[in-house]
Design a binder for these strands. Structure first.
Lengths: 235, 235
DNA sequence: AAGTGGTCTAGACCACTTG
DNA sequence: AAGTGGTCTAGACCACTTG
């Protein structure tokens, strides 16, 4: 099996919604109807509906049915933006300084995050993104070599890791955590921080259809970087 | 049935993690082991593990097992959640300590953020949210009195400002910025921080159909709070 | 009464990892 | 070879909403 059945049903529903055939707030087929239509068990149809509900695309009501949620509520607080574009968009001069580019043996937490075997080879890059020659963000990234075998051959002064990986293995999913940290010695060196200024750390795992592509720590001085977001609610 | 079985298993796992019995990154029982232990079907044990994984509490690897993820509190960047629910959902005891509840004259930045005239009266509240009697988040909020005239009469030990305002003036829109800061003296006092630990600050403006309802600063110790997010890409 | 979603069972086959 | 998580089946009973 290449694409799981529940994923096919999700795709089918998303396509109906995107095409406009199933408008906002309209009722969509019930679990039982999908069960017949796709010749699957109810648990499988249900999984598609449950996941789309968690993703904010559908809403469900016991006894009533399943409905298309409002489109507006789907905007995300954290867009995945390419930092080079971000800097250029606000008129800054973007440069990048690669510091490390290597293969290494994955210790357990990295192997687990990447979904590879412990001690297998993974790629690691460390680079610093500059805005107008001032360090804006340090990026330490671990890459699954199976999904991006030519990662180490790239010239990261020309293309950001995020740009390259988006081409090499199209993203299907990302998870992040955001926290405030005291920078480690490494980070202070990378960002040339002389004081222990609070830093904003984003940890991001990205998936393509074949699995986890990479696992990155993005660290920026608190005084120079913030994240912004915008949400709209239904009704 | 009062508490579903999958929820009981989730609670069991969370308790083990909170008690320290199952430390960070340790392996926890497999689906099959839980199946025996709780006399449930594998699908039910699996549901508990799947949901905890989506909540960022566990990580899973095919062939390897299921592991405890890091400890810090998580919240979704993609939705506006009520902090009381967030704490309760992970099995913590939620309490709230209101510190300030007053009307004041709006200085310029606050008046602008709220869309009212400079020097007009606005409401201000400061309260601290506790998880298991430890300060988790300080909240300083400025409220537009035209849209929530009875704000100061509420008992914020019973209902959070966010809950109350959601009822009083249904939200239509929110904007936030997230950044890492060094806590001010005020914040250190509110959170009883003795060191200048980096803090995560979320600034949030919320709108109802009639305008800006409130403007809040939510500040949490970096060691105790993180935001999490989950994105799915569509094609 | 009929349909909906919510929970659950007791199986099955599979891909993946480890000994 | 044995254990792990990932997908799936064909049923079941339930609470809830509607006609």
């Amino acid at each position: 099996m290449i694409t799981p059945k529940f994923a096919q049903i999700k795709r089918f529903i998303i396509d109906k919604i995107k095409s406009g055939e199933w408008p906002e707030h309209s009722r969509i087929p019930s679990e039982n109807e999908l069960t017949v239509q796709f010749s699957v068990s109810r648990m499988t149809a249900r999984r598609a509906l449950t996941e789309l509900t968690e993703e904010g695309i559908l809403t469900r009501s016991q006894g009533l049915g399943t409905f298309v949620a409002s489109f507006k509520s789907q905007s995300s607080l954290l867009e995945i933006r390419n930092i080079a574009d971000e800097v250029k968009d606000r008129g800054g001069q973007y440069t990048c300084n690669p510091i490390v580019l290597e293969s290494m043996q994955a210790i357990a937490p990295i192997a687990i995050a990447l979904g590879v075997e412990v001690d297998s080879l993974v790629y690691r890059s460390v680079l610093v993104h500059f805005e107008n020659d001032k360090p804006l963000q340090a990026e330490e990234r671990f890459v699954n070599p199976n999904l991006a075998p030519e990662y180490l051959q790239q010239n990261f002064e020309q293309i950001t890791p995020h740009e390259y990986l988006s081409q090499a293995a199209p993203l299907t999913e990302a998870r992040h955590t955001v926290e405030a940290i005291t920078p480690s010695d490494d980070v202070c060196e990378w960002l040339t921080l002389y004081n222990l200024e609070p830093c904003l750390q984003v940890i991001r795992r990205t998936w393509s259809s074949k699995g986890v592509v990479s696992f990155a720590r993005l660290i920026s001085p608190g005084s120079k970087y913030r994240l912004g977001g915008h949400l709209t609610f239904k009704k």
